[in-house]
Design a protein around this nucleic acid. Structure first.
Length: 554
RNA sequence: GGGCCUGUGGCUUAGCCAGGAUAUAGCGCCGGGCUUCUAACCCGGAUGUCGGGGGUUCGAAUCCCUCCAGGCCCGCCA
């Protein structure tokens, strides 16, 4: 609704001024939308901008397309205030199930996220990737895109060789009840300690990497076993996080099926390719000084070569590729894109996020310095259970456990997704365990409240007459939901939805405290109930897109 | 040394790419509000050289230059 009226107003302004850019901005407290076009016209027309805006406002007021919009000049600004017709149409749309969704669009999108190395459990840094990626996938689907979500399993890297070596040399057995990924971390940390005290082990690691690339069955099986064990642990964590992958793609498959060799053969023919024992690309025409090495002098391929094969495969099977990667991948991501361009292949859109560190410094799986996602989930869930028990002591344990799980997931996902990805953050237990303002549970609570009102109200006839300030502000925000989803998908910025949902909950809570719903009467009651229903529906859709449960009671 | 990102009240943060009207919220602080639709809530108040300095513009948190501070990257690692 908001999108539609914005386009109409912009179109009218263009028609009236003849300018392509009509300076349409948010109106703040003055209006719903405003135009600053009078400033730019002031120069060419050599007139006072206030005079121009007054004239334009008068002209626009008489346009039939803007019949439901109040147009008024205020100084140099042209203000647009959306009227009752807009509110009514918004409410009619917002009460419908699936509000904000659009029909399926042509083309398929492949979105890769998380793809952490299987050398230890997912930690609070990795799950920033998971949550950004999963939220994007949900928003893309809501916006009508067909999406396949993939996890790229780095199963033949040096880290995995170290884990494999550790398993066969250190005899570290799995503890009772220990998750596979946590066990792998202990092996990995111990193996690194061994390497540090005896650097000659590095030769054994190198030899393992050569064996796996040449397809040695025993070594491959050993790698695969370690990776599978870790991945099984990841899957449990991802499930708890409410994040879903359609497919796990194994890096080694691109060696086994010959894709990597074929890709390297193709690259060999490029002018930018140099072979001096190793094989590398000169990407200086793209501004990269660094040599982009694809094959070692011992003949084995490096990660970049396999990644190239993976992306070419994705590009040929999908219409659009999106990768979610840590900011440490910026250089290699840009090199990957440059190389794909050289080959005339499709290249990915990459969403980067900055690092999450601990108060004591950066996280390191190798050094055992990390807070695992499992630990975070456990502690937040325990705290949530305490909270639920205090607030709802009458509920039985199962019910309280269910709410606690839902609240914990909301707290974790929201805490992470609300921060714009380009901001590096420091993990803070106090914030993670806070379920109040600007949190996921806060939004869930608004939803549960709306559900409670609707349940008590029973059947009612919908009506669309809103008069109070808090009602109108709420309804106007509902109108922006489809626009917000559009923006998230267009800009690949999931935090916009997080901010939107929080603002919606804020406005609903204010409305709730100012205007009685069930105790009001007649048209007012019907209209307010319709507003509550529209809000409940929109909050539900927003929460679903954020990967957060929408509990009817909490 | 070079490249990328970040710097907004004591703390966290939106807005920046597509420049506009007194800069968005939260935490914390001060003061109110639960016999009233779920107080995981609401209302009011104090708190800002939008890192510093130049520039462009009628207008700069937003664009350009420069400096400062922090993070990340610059492996025949992934």
């Amino acid at each position: 609704m908001f999108l539609k009226i914005s386009n109409t107003i912009a179109g009218e302004l263009r028609a009236v001024t003849g300018l392509p850019d009509v300076g349409l901005v948010e109106g703040g407290e003055h209006a719903d939308l405003a135009s600053t076009v009078a400033f730019s016209l002031a120069k060419t027309r050599k007139q006072n901008p206030a005079q121009i805006s007054a004239e334009l406002a008068a002209t626009l007021s008489s346009r039939p397309e803007l019949a439901s919009v109040k147009v008024a000049a205020k100084g140099p600004y042209i203000n647009f205030i959306l009227g009752p017709g807009y509110i009514e149409e918004t409410l009619r749309e917002a009460v419908r199930p699936g509000y904000g969704s659009v029909p399926v669009r042509p083309g398929r999108v492949v979105l890769e996220h998380t793809s952490a190395n299987p050398n230890g459990p997912l930690h609070v840094g990795h799950i920033r990737n998971t949550i950004i990626g999963d939220t994007l996938a949900r928003c893309l689907k809501k916006a009508g895109h067909r999406v396949e979500v993939q996890y790229y399993v780095n199963d033949m890297g040096r880290q995995i060789a170290i884990v494999s070596w550790g398993f066969s040399h250190l005899g570290i057995s799995r503890n009772e009840g220990e998750k596979g990924d946590h066990h792998v971390a202990r092996v990995y940390i111990a193996a690194n300690r061994e390497i540090k005290s005896d650097p000659s082990i590095v030769e054994e690691i190198d030899s393992l990497m050569q064996d796996v690339e040449s397809g040695d069955p025993a070594v491959s099986a050993s790698f695969r076993s370690a990776v599978s064990q870790c991945l099984d642990g990841f899957k449990v964590t991802l499930e708890r996080l409410g994040a879903y992958h359609d497919r796990f793609v194994w890096e080694s498959d691109f060696i086994r099926n010959g894709d990597t060799e074929r890709v390297l053969d193709g690259i060999k023919r490029l002018d930018e390719c140099h072979t001096d024992g190793r094989m590398w690309l000169d990407l200086s025409e793209f501004g990269f000084e660094k040599e982009y090495v694809l094959r070692r002098s011992d003949g084995t391929s490096v990660y970049a070569a396999r990644d190239l094969a993976y992306h070419i495969w994705k590009g040929r099977n999908f219409d659009r590729m999106i990768d979610v990667l840590g900011a440490d991948h910026k250089l290699i991501g840009a090199q990957l894109i440059a190389t794909l361009k050289l080959q005339g292949e499709k290249y990915p859109e990459i969403v980067y996020f900055e690092f999450v560190s601990l108060p004591e410094g950066s996280m390191s799986t190798r050094a055992g310095k990390f807070v695992s996602a499992d630990q975070l989930l456990d502690e937040v869930t325990a705290k949530a259970f305490e909270e639920v028990t205090v607030r709802r002591p009458e509920l039985d344990v199962d019910k309280r456990n269910a709410i606690a799980r839902s609240v914990a997931l909301a707290a974790i996902r929201y805490d992470i997704v609300k921060i714009s990805p380009e901001k590096s953050t420091v993990f803070d237990w106090k914030e993670a365990l806070d379920f109040e303002r600007q949190s996921g549970p806060y939004i869930q609570y608004a939803y549960a409240r709306a559900c409670s009102i609707l349940e008590k109200a029973g059947e009612f006839e919908e009506a669309y007459t809103l008069e109070r300030e808090s009602e109108i502000a709420l309804a106007k925000h509902l109108a922006k939901f489809p626009y917000t989803i559009e923006m998230v998908v267009k800009e690949l910025k999931p935090h916009l939805l997080a901010i939107y949902a929080r603002e919606l909950a804020d406005l609903f809570n204010s409305f709730y405290h100012f205007e009685p719903v069930l105790k009001s009467e007649g048209l007012t009651r019907k209209s307010r109930l319709t507003l509550v229903k529209a809000t409940q529906n929109t909050l539900g859709e927003a929460l679903e897109s954020l990967g957060i449960d929408a509990p009817r009671t909490m």
